[in-house]
Computed example of a mutant assay.
Amino acid sequence: MYIKKILVAIALTGLVAAAFFANFVYKTMLKPNTAFNNETAYIYVSTNATYAEVRSQLEPLLIDMRTFDVLAEQKKYVSNIKAGKYAISKGMNNNDIINSIRSKNLPVTVSFNNQSVLEKLAGRISLQIEADSLDLIKAMTDSEFLKENNFNEATALGMYLPNSYEFFWNTDAEAFRDRMLKEYKRFWTDNRKAKAKSIGLSQKEVITLASIVYEESKQASEQPRIAGVYMNRLKIGMPLQADPTLKFAAYQLPKYQNTVIKRVLNVHKEIDSPYNTYKYRGLPPGLIAMPDISAIDAVLNHEKHKYLYFAANAQKLGYHKFAKTLSQHNANAREYQRYLTAQGINK
C-alpha cells in the first residue's frame, strides 16, 4: 500500500511537471505573440547588428518579449543575426518569428528616375537600401572601376538606367554598383549594339545624345524626331546648338549655382566649356543628365527626315515646331520668345 502511494505521488508529480513543461513550450514556442493590428510589420536588420539592436525593433511589436528571448537563446539566434528586411505577420508565434527573421530576407524594389548627377542618385538610392550615400558615391566614382569598364567621370552617370530593380535591403554600395553594370550590359543587346554601329555612334555617345534629347523633350512621341534633327546636324558638321547643354555648362560655374535658367540668352552662348554646343561642334564629353530609356531608343531609332531646326511650341507647351530652313525656324523661335516675354520670363 505504501509503495502504491509513492508510485501515485511520482505519477502525479510527473503529470504536473509535464503540464508545466507543456505550458512552457506553448507560451514560448506556440502561443501567438504579436502586439500590432496591421496584417504585417517589418524590421530592418543592419549588417553586423547585435541582438540588442534587433530586440529594440521587436519589442514594440511583441506581447511577451521575455519568452521570445528564451527561445532566441535556445535556437542560437542571438549569436547568428542575419541582415536584411524581414516580415512578421499578425498572429505569429515566437518560433515562426525567429524562423522568419533568420532565413526569409525579403527583396525591396529600388527605383530611380532622371537624376542629374551621381550625388543625387546616391542620395536617392541610400533611402532605399542599407548603403549610405557617401559609400555609394565612393563606389560609383572609383577610378579603377571606371577605367576597367571604359567609363570616366563625364560618362559614369550613363551606366545607371532609370527603372525599378529588386535588391535585398542589406545590399552594400559596391554590390549595387556592380549590379547596375550588369543591367547596363544587359540593356545593350546585340540589336541595340548593331543599331548604334549603324548610326556611327558608340554606346556612350548614344546615351550622351539621348540625355540632350530627353532634356529637350519629355514627350516620348516627339523624341525620335528631335533625335533625328541632331543626327542631321552631326552628319553635316553643324554645331548641335542645344540649349540644354548651355544650361549644363552654366550650372558648373559659381555664378549660376542655386539658380534656375528659364531662358537661354546670348551671354550663355559665350561660356567657354566643352559642353557649349554653340561654340564647339560634335557631342559634348558626356551626358548632361540621366535620360529615360525612351530617349536612348529614340536616338537608336531616330526619325529619318530633313529637319535641321526646332523651337518650343507656344501653342502646345511641352512640344516643338520643326523647320527645314533657318528662316522658318527664326519665325518659330520669335513666336516662342514673344511668349516668354509675355510671361515675364527674362532670364
Rank of each mutant, 00 (worst) to 15 (best):
M238L: 12
F24M: 08
V267G: 14
N149R: 08
S46E: 14
S294W: 01
Y26G: 04
K27S: 11
N163Q: 09
A22M: 09
N313S: 14
N114K: 07
N93D: 04
L71Y: 04
P244K: 10
F168D: 11
L234Q: 09
V110G: 01
Y42W: 13
N163R: 06
S273I: 05
L308V: 14
N258Q: 15
T325W: 14
H268R: 12
S116Y: 08
K27G: 04
S294V: 02
F24Q: 10
R192S: 10
P32K: 06
E153P: 00
H302F: 14
A323L: 15
E130P: 08
G84N: 06
N33Y: 11
K279Q: 12
L326E: 11
A210F: 04
V264G: 10
T189N: 09
V299K: 07
A72T: 05
Y339V: 03
V260Y: 10
D135I: 03
F151D: 00
A72L: 07
E119A: 07
K120G: 10
L30F: 11
Y42A: 13
A41F: 01
I81N: 03
A131L: 13
V206T: 09
T50F: 03
H329G: 14
N330W: 10
M29K: 08
L146C: 03
E216R: 02
I293S: 15
N95M: 01
P224R: 08
P162K: 06
A210K: 02
N113K: 07
Q315W: 06
N332H: 09
T141N: 12
V70G: 07
L234T: 09
S273V: 03
P244G: 10
F68E: 02
R66G: 13
L246Q: 09
S217P: 05
N276L: 08
D172P: 04
K247E: 06
A41L: 03
R186I: 11
D297S: 01
F24Y: 10
F20A: 12
L308P: 15
A196F: 12
P224K: 08
W188Q: 13
Y278W: 11
Y319C: 04
S202M: 07
L121K: 02
Y275A: 07
A22E: 09
S217R: 03
F68C: 02
T277L: 11
A311I: 13
R186C: 02
G123H: 05
D243M: 05
A22W: 10
I10S: 00
A35R: 14
E303C: 02
K247T: 06
T155Y: 01
E39V: 12
I296R: 02
H268N: 13
S143W: 04
D142N: 15
A19K: 11
V108E: 06
T341K: 14
K90I: 04
T28W: 03
K147L: 14
S79I: 08
I293G: 07
V260C: 05
R281C: 05
K279N: 08
I236M: 11
S143M: 09
K316I: 03
L157E: 00
A314I: 10
S100M: 07
L161W: 09
V267K: 15
E119G: 01
G282M: 03
A22Q: 13
P284A: 07
P32Q: 05
I288L: 08
T325G: 14
L7C: 01
D272L: 01
N330L: 15
K269F: 15
Y77Q: 00
G200C: 15
I3P: 00
K304P: 03
A122W: 01
F187A: 11
T341V: 12
A312V: 14
A83N: 08
